[in-house]
């Protein structure tokens, strides 16, 4: 199955990543599968929440199909972002994938407790990382059926 960017008119993926090099690498991996233009990037937890849950007087972006959420973020960390997304009606069912360096059991458990849709550890080997991003794109943008808008 091939991923084609022209399938997606909007930003279908929101990447929440504070490390600019990791951002560049993730975008590079997405680019290899022609998904780069489908990605919006926010660089900390507050920015991510502003994007997904804008205040009443701000422009409302359509929700992405997928949020790729790092755990260690400035201001609000990934777990806190996830908790708030799950509390809010608009984002309660939004697919969120934790994409992180950590394979610590308590991170994995806490992420699932707070309602993550999936948990993926970023491989150090970039070839494996690219594969992981391809699988994520395939699964969440094409195979997976998103919850209907409410």
């Amino acid at each position: 199955m091939e991923l084609r960017a022209d399938l997606f008119r909007d930003k279908r993926i929101l990447l929440v990543e504070d490390n600019p090099r990791d951002e560049a690498l993730t975008l590079r991996a997405l680019q290899k599968h022609n998904l780069q233009s489908a990605v919006a990037v926010t660089r900390d937890g507050v920015e991510a929440l502003d994007y997904l849950l804008p205040a009443a007087d701000h422009a409302v972006q359509p929700l992405p199909q997928l949020v790729l959420l790092d755990l260690k973020l400035p201001k609000l960390d990934g777990l806190e972002v996830l908790r708030r997304l799950r509390e809010h009606e608009r984002t309660r069912l939004l697919p969120v994938v934790i994409l992180t360096s950590s394979a610590e059991e308590r991170d994995i458990l806490e992420s699932y407790r707070l309602g993550t849709s999936s948990y993926v550890r970023k491989p150090v080997d970039f070839a494996e990382f690219t594969e992981a991003v391809r699988y994520l794109g395939l699964y969440w943008l094409i195979l997976n059926i998103a919850p209907p808008a409410q």
Binding site: N19, R21, D22, L25, R28, L71, K72, T100, S101, S102, A103, E104, K122, P123, V124, D125, F126, A127, F129
Partner: peptide, 22 residues
């Protein structure tokens, strides 16, 4: 400490590997 190792020590390695491959 272990938590920090898990998170912070791997990130630079990903960059070293990723940009070398790039």
């Amino acid at each position: 400490f272990s938590y920090s190792v898990a998170h912070d020590l791997r990130a630079p390695l990903r960059s070293i590997d990723g940009f070398s491959l790039a």
